[in-house]
Design a protein around this nucleic acid. Sequence first.
DNA 1: CGGGATCCCATATGATACTG
DNA 2: CAGTATCATATGGGATCCCG
Lengths: 120, 120
Amino acid sequence: MSGELHREPDGHDVYTAQGPSRALLDLVANKWSALIIGTLEEGPRRFGQIQQHLQGISPKMLTQTLRRLQGNGLVDRVIYPAVPLHVEYSLTSRGRSAAAPLGLLRTWVEENAGEAPRSG
Amino acid sequence: MSGELHREPDGHDVYTAQGPSRALLDLVANKWSALIIGTLEEGPRRFGQIQQHLQGISPKMLTQTLRRLQGNGLVDRVIYPAVPLHVEYSLTSRGRSAAAPLGLLRTWVEENAGEAPRSG
DNA sequence: CGGGATCCCATATGATACTG
DNA sequence: CAGTATCATATGGGATCCCG
């Protein structure tokens, strides 16, 4: 495990708890983020399309997650001021670079789902 | 985005909301899971060692996450009934297979942290 | 009509103290 | 040392209402 390590006086290393990494990791290592980014990987999508595709996300979580992704420069939001209103979300180049590892993670999940299930 | 799709009568596809994937994704697409698995990737570690390394996780979350990982067959827990008590956690082979995509995700995070930060 | 803000409750998470 | 118990708070999430 590399990066963002901090060497202690007594010789072993720890993670700096307040590093910016933690916040970003919290954003991308997140169920909805992973799914949304996966959806947008296929191309630009509208709010309702994402909601349909993810089948079970509430509009609130969708909005909230999209805003966080947008705020961190992973997602672009474009409004087409037509009637009815048309808003399109798409991945930025950074978002696409994040989509790669997330895609592998989702693939791993799909290949490993349905075995040894247990709540905790 | 592949896997676990469900074709609707009207032609477009959605994700089955209640599939086992969602639960597993929720487990691995999680900040603490990603960090813990990353720590154990270096080798077996004791409870306190993980806690030190992650610098900021509460014992409760550590226990809870370790148990969930164990319950899903990603982590092994071995007790050495000595005094003082000694408990060691390690990745199972499945855990190691999950460590790969998670490592890539953490790498991405480290390479992309500290830019365009924003809360929401 | 599609997009999304608000209200309110359930659960997740976290700090801290305490025990086998 | 390795957790568990307890309490306080943040976030998740559904239902519903509002706006362009």
